[in-house]
Amino acid sequence: MAASIEFLQASPYFAGMTEPEIEVISGLFFQKTIEKGEKITWQGDPGEALYFVASGAVKCFKTSPEGKEQILQIVLPGNSFNDVAVFDGGLSPTSTEAMSLVNLYVISRSDMGGILTDHPKIMINVIDILSSKIRHLLELVEDLSFRQVIGRIARILLEYADGAGPKPKLTQHEMAALAGTAREVVGRSLKTLQGDGMIRMERNRLVIADKEALSQMVNAHS
């Protein structure tokens, strides 16, 4: 099934394309539904397709030889993944997995290349998107290099409680994989934050009770 016209019109990749142009390219996409917990791509595979998240959330992660996971990005609706391997023709640098039931629009590398050749005006969109992804990764490097673990966890909590759009629920394992630390450290940090009155654990809800103090914790631990 082709991608929805409305979805492609709202995608930053295709900003500036006319409706008739979008209608033509929509036929190049196919839809894919992935169950929660199912892998979508594997690190080291050829980058044969570009994926757009229509609904749900996808985590992009790397796994160390010891099995430690580092989440690099959680991709939310409207955004894409596997861009790097599609554009440089190399292998996928990360694996991806559905964090919920996910609906994807998928386009092959060759069809995406054809769109760029036929519509060079959208090259600037690609530059914007890749720049934004580099900026995100630089923030992650800064976080892992300079911020202490509890500050990283405070930042993750604030980011995932942000009201802008639906966000996936996170396990403590996933918080650890986002923060580049061990799960046990996350458990201890959450207890500390709870003891200081910044958060409250209510069964399967983690409530930020003092947003101001938590924000200060992010900045204090950098």
Binding site: L157, Y160, A161, G163, K167, K169, L170, T171, Q172, H173, R183, E184, G187, R200, M201, N204, R205, L206, V207, I208, A209, K211
Partner: peptide, 21 residues
């Protein structure tokens, strides 16, 4: 979340919804 922590297969998931009061 102890079950999630001890599972050697990573087969248990205790997910948290993160919200601001």
């Amino acid at each position: 979340s102890v079950c999630e922590a001890v599972c050697p297969e990573g087969a248990l998931y205790c997910e948290f919804e993160i919200v601001i009061e």
